[in-house]
Simulated assay, not measured.
Amino acid sequence: MAKSMESWAEGLPSEFQQRSLKEILRQEAAWVLGLTAVAIFILARWRADFGYWQYVVLVSWYVGLLLAGIAWRPLQWATVASVLPALGAVWLYAHGQTPANNVVLHYVLQGVAAALWMSALLLLSTGAYLVSVFTGSAAIGRWATRLTWAGVIFGFIGLGVRWRETYLGHASWGHIPVSNLWEVFVLFCATTPLFYLYYEQKAQNRSLGAFVMPLVAAAVGFLLWLTLAQHMDQVEPLIPALQSFWMKLHVPMMFVGYANFTIASLIGVAYLLRDWSVRRGGVLAARLPDAELMDDVMYRAIALGFLFFTVATILGAVWAARAWGGFWSWDPKETWALIVWLNYAGYLHARVVKGWRGRSMAWWSFLSLWVVSFCFLGVNMFLSGLHSYGKL
């Protein structure tokens, strides 16, 4: 199952090969035209309400989705599969339907219902990945990938419908659904498997899912606790500090960083276990990718996460200046974000400048998970500060 770095380039799908602009426009015409039509519709429909920064948000999302879809074709159909049902739910709400009188909304398309479907599918996919890696069953592995895709799609359906639902209580409540722990855990549980699927395709090996998906399953468990015990799935009005267009960029970009850092950490675990298995003659040595490939994927995940985390931190500082009157206040969340940034800046320096590879970098990546986890969750649960709106 493992694939060496030398044969990686030859086995990449066509969307990863070098293409001219003319070839891209011809091969990706439907994606480019469809996304452009959506952007034009948004402008035509809501331009009167746009300020300068709303244009920045729209252009950022448009360019980001356009390039990501061109680079990775599965994202195109996954986007369509997420957006169309979400729009169907919005249409039902617009025509007087509610979860109380519409069975589809109640059991499938309502934001909370879709998040629960996501949770069930991701738990099933986690089990399938674990069975696949221990039995070596390629068929179960394929089902694990399919279940993960289904969970990701339901997660983004839930977020899309939730966005519309925030306007139902009162028009002034409307906001992108990343304002409390429940919403950001739905985002984390949808985003992390999505990026994992990208790296799975690059590595052409499904065994890494047995390491990444159990942590996603743990996040799903926490999400279910927030839903069933804490009832944090209820829509509430935003506090004044969160009533900003910056949230549409800062939080999603931050979670791209969190997702990639998490994946890299768990690939580090896989690397270390494979190394142990090679010395002991265990089964993982044959089923996990080559060490060189895992080292490279781990580095790429951290590099991508670091890019988004850096931009998100800068945007957060600008947002803080507008909301609280200063770019930096040594709030616990800000301080731990800086710790995360310095940690991964150190990793990239050691990797790129010093040429460090192998077990030492795998340990660095794995241990970094605890730093990221505390920044993401621990600060909200145990510390107080300007970001205390995220507490339980």
Rank of each mutant, 00 (worst) to 15 (best):
P240D: 09
L228I: 15
W173A: 08
R164K: 10
M232E: 14
L223T: 12
R206Q: 10
W163Y: 13
L273A: 02
P252I: 03
G169K: 11
W276R: 15
V269Y: 06
W246T: 03
L249W: 00
L208Y: 10
N180K: 12
D233S: 12
G158N: 09
F255T: 02
A210V: 01
G209E: 01
M253W: 14
Q201D: 05
V251S: 10
A217R: 05
P177T: 09
A203I: 04
P237R: 09
A190L: 11
H170I: 02
L266T: 03
L224G: 07
V220P: 10
M232N: 10
V184E: 01
V186W: 03
F211H: 00
A171Q: 14
V216M: 02
V161G: 10
M254C: 10
I263C: 05
E236M: 09
P177Y: 06
A210W: 04
D233N: 14
G221E: 04
A210S: 06
P193W: 07
D275E: 14
V212M: 03
W173N: 13
S277F: 04
Q204C: 09
S277G: 12
R164I: 01
S172G: 12
L226W: 03
V212G: 05
W246M: 14
G169L: 11
F245L: 10
T192E: 13
V178R: 08
G257M: 09
V235R: 02
P214K: 03
L208H: 06
V256Q: 07
A241E: 13
T191M: 12
I239T: 13
R206W: 06
A218V: 15
F211N: 01
M247S: 14
I176D: 00
S244W: 02
L226G: 09
L226K: 00
Y271V: 07
M253Q: 12
Y198H: 06
S277V: 00
D275C: 07
G158R: 10
R274I: 05
L273D: 05
S244E: 03
T262M: 07
F261C: 02
T192C: 07
V278H: 05
W182F: 15
F188K: 03
L208V: 11
E200A: 09
C189M: 05
A210H: 00
S244C: 06
W182K: 11
L266H: 04
V178T: 14
L242V: 00
W163D: 07
H170Q: 13
Y271T: 08
L194D: 00
H231N: 11
A217C: 03
L159Q: 12
G155A: 01
Q243C: 01
Q204K: 15
G174Y: 10
N180Y: 12
M253H: 02
L223A: 10
L215D: 00
I157M: 05
S244R: 07
M253S: 13
S207T: 13
A171M: 09
H170F: 13
V161Q: 08
L208I: 14
W182Y: 15
P177M: 04
T227H: 03
N180M: 01
K248G: 06
T166V: 12
Q230Y: 07
Q243F: 06
L181S: 11
R206E: 08
D275K: 14
I176K: 02
A217L: 02
Y271P: 02
A217T: 13
W276T: 05
V212W: 09
D275V: 08
G268P: 04
